[in-house]
Design a protein around this nucleic acid. Structure first.
Lengths: 250, 250
DNA sequence: ACCGCTCAGATTGTGCACAATTCTGGAGGC
DNA sequence: GCCTCCAGAATTGTGCACAATCTGAGCGGT
């Protein structure tokens, strides 16, 4: 059933999909994911099925399936009978996501550092090509591109580390950190600095044991530190805090 | 919108769902997941929408959604126009899943070992209660219960470690290792031994630094080592191997 | 003014029918 | 004998219509 004997008709073997139909659904998922990451869709935004269907020129059922996938990845929140919203992580969840990233990405870096030297040429090429893209985006002050490339950088490392399962896990975590950043970034902050990435690439090429791993941890710590993850568990408490030092104008 | 001011009507706040409607879908997902884990549904099994709908007494669309969720978790494979099958991991994927588990569960154990001592009473209770359940299942030689409890043990540790995000990641990894075990277990093998779990609990309670973590790594290595993860990338090669030493009966 | 009630409009949820594709078994030609 | 081709059956994919539920505004009572 799942096997084709060598003498049988060499029929096209349709490749397995993990859940998203390649062309249509996957494109929409990616598109919405990027919009959330670069904050065209801030946390809490209502995602009406009808509007999305119209925007992408597909049927409502198609949108429905996409929202289900995004909900599974915790990028949107589905509330029964009320619809889909861009997820609004709690500070706790944000911290958890960053801790998970530190765990996963430390393992990835350790794997990369264990690779036999010198590193294969195509790997070096990919790292350098990506570096160039990030430099260009930074030079042009193209914020959207920088956000997208920053995520892709971490994903690239996971990919070349050779464990697709870990890379898949990291994909979700990166999407969720974009969300956390969108939700908690301080006004005055800058994005995931391309400089950190440059140093990371250099450390990986020059093979000083543990250095690249340490840089990655610092990098992730730094990104998390730039967020404002104070209590604010609820808007109820917020109101009290805001009006606490009001000078009672009556 | 997401906040209710204190003076407003204390209306029921519908809790967010991550994608599975609580009662119906979640139950079916769990049910199918367990059936796959204890090998009532071996890898490669065709999951016909109609049959599942009938079996669970729900509509076909409901089943469709469930299959989409399971596909997202890589527990089933969706092939366009051909249907859903219990996933059949490759040896490579199996290795990747176990490596991911070692990474995640090492981090969880390190977290648990950092907990202030003595451990809170309710945590100890939960560990001991679970241990009793595993003992009982082993005594009764209840294979299904042992498999289920073994997964729950690892999940329990993740949960008490206090990072729900990591626990969620581990949930998927555990399901996928069950699948890998189902696909590659040697004929003569025993399951994830309850003995390992007992020792782990003991090591956690008695606080010898690093011991519990080391036991966990050994435990996972041992489970993986019991699998037969030799090449066999395809059934094509299989056939040649099988008939290689046939004495040509013509 | 404030609170609760009710009703229209909008949005999500679900079953059903039909279209599209694949699978099966058998007839026919080489 | 073996391969190819071709209906018919079975299975999956998709749009549509309607049911269920929620939102928000208006209205009357206190």
């Amino acid at each position: 059933m799942t096997t084709a004997s060598p003498t049988k008709t060499p029929r096209r073997e349709p490749r397995a999909r993990t859940g998203a139909r390649s062309s249509a659904e996957a494109r929409i998922v990616r598109s919405i994911g990027e919009a959330i990451a670069d904050r065209r869709l801030p946390p809490g935004t209502k995602l009406t099925e009808e509007s999305l269907a119209e925007a992408f020129g597909v049927s409502r059922e198609r949108v429905r399936k996409v929202l289900l996938l995004l909900a599974q990845r915790r990028v949107v929140t589905l509330i029964p009978n009320r619809g889909a919203f861009v997820a609004k992580p709690t500070p706790r969840e944000a911290r958890e996501v960053f801790e998970a990233r530190r765990i996963v990405e430390r393992a990835i870096m350790e794997r990369l550092e264990r690779l036999p030297r010198p590193l294969p040429a195509d790997l070096l090429d990919r790292l350098r090509d990506h570096g160039a893209l990030e430099d260009a985006a930074e030079r042009d002050a193209d914020r959207k591109a920088m956000i997208r490339l920053s995520g892709q950088f971490h994903l690239l490392l996971a990919e070349v580390a050779g464990n697709a399962t870990l890379a898949g896990i990291l994909t979700d975590l990166i999407d969720r950190s974009s969300l956390a950043i969108a939700a908690f970034e301080r006004r005055s902050s800058h994005t995931c600095s391309a400089d950190d990435h440059r140093r990371l690439i250099a450390a990986l090429i020059g093979n000083r044991p543990g250095e690249a791993t340490a840089l990655m941890i610092d990098h992730l710590d730094e990104v998390e530190r730039q967020l404002d993850l104070e209590a604010k568990t609820d808007a109820r408490i917020d109101l009290k805090a805001i009006f606490a030092d009001e000078p009672e104008p009556a």
